[in-house]
């Protein structure tokens, strides 16, 4: 896939989706875009995630293949690294938590520089990917939690708490929430990185650009709505509460930007389980990270282990008995008289 084709096709698809989303502003179609599509998207999302997780979970893990990134547990006087080379469930949990909450492996992307007194690890430009990724994911999470305000009445305490942190700058009216901008910036960085680094451009597919375009459009439309082209926020909350309570009435007069925003979110939800975005679920099933490195101490069971044909010692001895006896090697069956006579 040529790079331009990848980029343009992903861009075209998102543009078309934006156009379709705008149709939500047509009063006659509002039940479809305001009720049917969101419910369908959520159902696809949930069913898709469950289907994927079941797909992974039901597949056997025949061998324990963790990647060890630290000293194994061995002799008592050798310092064991219980997280990078976990030999217990607690260690595995800690390793997975570090991986999922702090993107531990990505953080390993350090560089060395040669100073006066030898090589040194430097933390710098090589960790931009880590920084971009962590900002992107946490900003996304914060935005999602903030949006629970629309679906809860009274609004959950957690949402208030997150909003307090997110809006700590206390500027602007409505109060500026950092997460939306952080999401836009980090997503933009991840996109630029893909475009600017030749080897990344070379490996990128349309389905790498598409979700980025989609998420960036969602973030941009959200920011526009909150700060610039205001939509009727009370009506939006009413719609959200309606859907949450399975009441299928759409309040009138919500701006077109909202309909675009909502439709893109629906597309993202429906797309999520069937795309690389499933890495969020899949990472929990990664055998190089979620297994203990104690297979010499506790046997791992392969459910489909089957007997194989081996070359037995008996067959081996039969083939070499004479030479073995001659060389003074012990044998199980002595040479019989006839064989020696020959």
């Amino acid at each position: 896939m040529n790079f331009w084709v990848s980029l343009i096709s992903a861009g075209v698809v998102v543009t078309v989706l934006i156009a379709i989303g705008a149709l939500g502003a047509v009063p006659a179609l509002q039940v479809i875009f305001g009720v049917a599509v969101p419910i369908l998207a959520v159902l696809i999302f949930l069913a898709g995630i469950i289907w994927r997780v079941v797909q992974y979970a039901r597949r056997p893990v025949p061998f324990a293949i963790p990647t060890t990134c630290g000293q194994q547990k061995t002799l008592p006087w050798i310092k064991h690294n219980p997280v990078e080379s976990p030999n217990s469930t607690a260690g595995v949990v800690a390793r997975m938590a570090l991986e999922i909450l702090t993107f531990r492996s990505l953080f390993r992307n350090t560089a060395m520089s040669l100073g006066e007194d030898g090589p040194k690890i430097t933390y710098g430009s090589t960790q931009w990917l880590w920084l971009g990724a962590i900002v992107f994911h946490y900003a996304f999470l914060t935005v999602v939690i903030r949006h629970m305000r629309f679906f809860t009445e009274p609004v959950w305490g957690l949402v208030h708490l997150i909003e307090t942190f997110d809006g700590f700058l206390e500027v602007g009216l409505p109060g500026l929430m950092l997460s939306g901008f952080a999401l836009l910036a980090a997503g933009g960085y991840l996109l630029l990185r893909r475009l600017a680094i030749p080897q990344l451009r070379y490996i990128s597919l349309p389905n790498d650009y598409f979700p980025l375009f989609l998420i960036l459009s969602i973030a941009a439309s959200g920011i526009l709505m909150r700060y610039f082209v205001k939509v009727d926020i009370v009506a939006v909350k009413e719609l959200a509460m309606n859907i949450a309570n399975f009441k299928f009435a759409v309040p009138e007069g919500i701006g077109v930007l909202f309909w675009i925003h909502l439709f893109l979110v629906c597309v993202l939800l429906a797309y999520f389980p069937f795309s690389k975005l499933i890495h969020s679920g899949g990472v929990f099933f990664s055998p190089t990270r979620n297994m203990a490195t104690n297979t010499r101490e506790y046997r791992h069971i392969n459910p489909w282990n089957y007997p194989v044909k081996i070359h037995t010692y008996e067959a081996y001895e039969d083939e070499f008995r004479e030479k073995m006896v001659e060389a003074g090697l012990p044998v199980d069956k002595p040479l019989d008289e006839e064989a020696t006579a020959q």
Binding site: Y56, V61, S204, K276, I278, T288
Partner: peptide, 19 residues
């Protein structure tokens, strides 16, 4: 038969960290 294969086929995001 191998969860590893199935998972590794699906979840790569081509971030380039390994490149």
């Amino acid at each position: 038969r191998f969860r590893s294969l199935k998972v590794f086929m699906d979840i790569c995001v081509r971030c380039g960290a390994c490149a």
